[in-house]
């Protein structure tokens, strides 16, 4: 059974759809990275999933069951903007968490706060820097015994050392079976910590999959054709090729799966100087969110 199952999730504000029909299945123990440009609908999705804002349509299941108040005992959520109380000290937050959550471990919270460099727990939250607020919110969340962690930009404002610490906390939780869903603009972090990713754009999912499988499948296969007017009929219609660019004798195929096969086909076609170019997650992300060049115009003259 999946830890989180989202079907047809929508949130509209007037005629604008902030979340426009999202389907996602997140297995238990998975670290799932949600990527997308600003305004793509990532934060709205988090809030809809948790019922913090009312979804216009769709269904969300936690380990197979709809959300009920008791479920929050096993779910932790760190929103994009800190929800700590300015007028309370860090210690008061620890006490507050201890009162409100059965599985909260104050000793663990203090260890994590120490590790993240939030030294003095007598400090009021208003006296903390933005990064230290994030660190405090993250430490409080990770000090709970939970099944599901939802982190909206958990590393924003953190220095590189603390960013790494937070990634390792996520990895540690996942190794114990906790499901972690996080959003980030830092693709390098997602590339490390996440097993699966989804890319959102304008409220929709434009790409989803296991990071390593996306990298294994998505390559640029480039070659040089024998002549300028060489026919590549048939090759152009291969479903495994997302986009084909041709400039005279130079042929570039943006392959989405089985790049080795495509390279072999291009080889059989008589292409020379064959290269299979690896794509980083950043390349794959940018390709997913950038406006597609019309394939027809590129293939013209084929």
């Amino acid at each position: 059974m999946n830890a989180l199952s989202i079907t047809g999730l929508r949130k509209t504000y007037g005629s604008v759809a902030a979340v426009d029909g999202i389907d996602l299945e997140i297995p238990q123990g998975c670290v799932f990275g949600l990527l997308g440009p600003n305004g793509a609908g990532k934060s709205t999705t988090f809030k809809c999933v948790l019922g913090l804002i009312h979804a216009s349509a769709g269904r969300v299941l936690f380990a197979g069951a709809p959300l009920e108040p008791g479920a929050f005992e096993r779910i932790a959520y760190v929103p994009e903007r800190s929800v700590l109380y300015d007028w309370m000290s860090v210690r008061e937050h620890i006490e507050y968490m201890q009162t409100n959550f059965v599985g909260f471990d104050p000793k663990r919270a203090r260890e994590l706060l120490e590790q993240l460099g939030v030294g003095d727990e007598r400090k009021k939250v208003r006296a903390l820097s933005k990064g230290m607020r994030t660190a405090t919110a993250v430490a409080l969340a990770f000090a709970r015994r939970i099944d599901l962690l939802l982190l909206d930009e958990p590393t924003s404002g953190l220095d590189p050392v603390n960013q790494r610490t937070v990634l390792n906390l996520m990895i540690n939780e996942a190794a114990q079976g906790t499901t972690v869903v996080f959003s980030s603009h830092q693709i390098g972090q997602v590339e490390r910590a996440a097993e699966r990713i989804a890319v959102m754009q304008r409220g929709r999912l434009v790409l989803e999959g296991v990071v390593d499988d996306l990298k294994a499948g998505r390559k640029i296969v480039a070659g040089i054709l024998p002549t300028d007017d060489f026919s590549i009929n048939g090759f152009a219609n291969d479903a495994r090729i997302g986009r084909l660019e041709r400039n005279g004798r130079i042929l570039r195929a943006y392959v989405t799966e089985q790049p080795e096969d495509i390279a072999e086909n291009m080889n059989a076609l008589g292409a020379q100087g064959l290269r299979v170019v690896d794509l980083s997650l950043e390349d794959i992300f940018l390709d997913a969110v950038s406006p597609k060049v019309a394939t027809a115009s590129i293939v013209e003259g084929v």
């Binding site: 998975c30 790494r164 990895i171 996942a174 910590a193 390593d212």
Partner: peptide, 18 residues
């Protein structure tokens, strides 16, 4: 162990397990 290597490299445990 899978967990130890995942933490040492800061990569996903399921990736190491795979």
């Amino acid at each position: 162990t899978v967990k130890q290597l995942a933490l040492d490299l800061t990569v996903n445990p399921n990736t190491v397990a795979r």
